[in-house]
Design a protein around this nucleic acid. Structure first.
Lengths: 140, 140
DNA sequence: CCTATATACTCGTATAGCCGCATATACGTG
DNA sequence: CACGTATATGCGGCTATACGAGTATATAGG
């Protein structure tokens, strides 16, 4: 049952949950897409994607400068079913829908900006400013 | 989506997962039952039960010296469906079945022992001896 | 009241996890 | 080769979590 706990540990982070949610709806995303959609820093985006990769929930594909991440069909039964349920569980959430909308907005204007990551970073700042109260979320 | 991450955090611990699993199959369990079945210390059992209670996954009932814990129907949709799925996911696992067996063995001989917790502690020691290698489980 | 018991809780400590910053790496273009 | 860009990662700091050991609390029974 250790592996099950391990699996839930991967899901036990809001940023990772959001990334998974975005990947449910977009075959491939690169790091700066995640940065822009979630409004997080590059290192944070990269690290969480690495965690997901390590947990075998996503695969990555290098294309030139970009790394594209894709959801990978889980070989574990528990993971497979829980991810499917997660997708359904989040489907009716306003914040999940808003997240998707933000991503699509970013993807639209993506080509117009000279530097991809620079634009994403600006988006990150804008998002960060909205949430002035920042605090950790504990288990208890 | 923060609440979802929060919920998965509660599941992200092997001991808590095991407790939930046992509670799927036994209406009520007291702390020493959990101690004995999982082979853990009293403080660990009590603490994890407190965490589950705090997360509104269980309720407790005091009866004399004993505290009985019971799974409580989740009001949150996400929690409800994921717990139900969890139950199904674990159903075909050998270690989950073995855990139930251990608990039933304990419950049978429970009345024969003079001190409940003392017997449970002995069981804890016996279980601990089996697993000589003890290490933390990390996310990555 | 005194003792044993079951549980909760308080320490102190060790570890895990998240984060930002800075840097390294790798690739594309001129 | 030099420069800009996208990503990965080492490092240090901080917080959250988990744990054992010990202690406090409450209750049952003499």
């Amino acid at each position: 049952m250790k592996d099950a706990a391990q699996f839930f540990k991967v899901l036990a982070d809001e940023a990772r949950l959001k990334i998974i949610w975005l990947l449910f709806h977009h075959e491939e995303l690169c790091v700066c897409d995640v940065m822009a959609a979630l409004g997080i820093t590059q290192s944070k985006a990269s690290r969480h994607l690495a965690t997901l990769k390590h947990a075998a929930l996503v695969t990555d594909r290098k294309d030139g400068l970009w790394s594209y991440y894709t959801l990978r069909p889980a070989d574990d039964g528990l993971a497979k079913t829980h991810l499917a349920l997660l997708r359904r569980s989040l489907a009716d959430r306003p914040d999940a829908a808003a997240l998707l909308k933000t991503l699509r907005g970013w993807l639209n204007g993506k080509n117009r900006s000279v530097a991809c990551a620079r634009g994403a970073a600006c988006a990150a700042n804008a998002t960060a400013k909205k949430t002035t109260t920042r605090q950790r979320d504990t288990v208890r």
